[in-house]
């Protein structure tokens, strides 16, 4: 299933891109979150998931669909 992943904050610094459209094997938000957290490059960065511009609870499990836009939103400290 192909989705668009959008990165923000420190995730952009680490991954070097704002956005990528790619195939994923996971069919739920919980499985995807689990998969993303296991990625060594970004596993240490805290973030929330938003699916199609709506934030989801960490304990909420949403079924993903082809074409979903999934944003990874970390908190920022600076001011």
């Amino acid at each position: 299933m192909e989705v668009t992943l959008k990165y923000f904050g420190q995730l952009v610094d680490v991954l070097g891109t704002h956005e990528e459209t790619r195939g994923i094997e996971q069919h739920t938000s919980a499985a995807l979150l689990d998969h993303l957290k296991k990625n060594n490059a970004i596993g240490h960065i805290p973030f929330q998931l938003a699916i199609n511009q709506k934030l989801i609870d960490q304990d909420e499990n949403v079924t993903l669909k082809e074409g979903d836009v999934i944003a990874l939103l970390p908190p920022y400290a600076g001011g």
């Binding site: 904050g9 420190q10 805290p46 929330q48 934030l55 960490q58 970390p74 908190p75 920022y76 400290a77 600076g78 001011g79």
Partner: peptide
């Protein structure tokens, strides 16, 4: 409701701005 858990992230002094 947005960020339920307190975490440590870099400030402007550390990240630059």
């Amino acid at each position: 409701c947005l960020f339920p858990k307190a975490v440590e992230v870099p400030s402007c002094a550390e990240a630059g701005v």
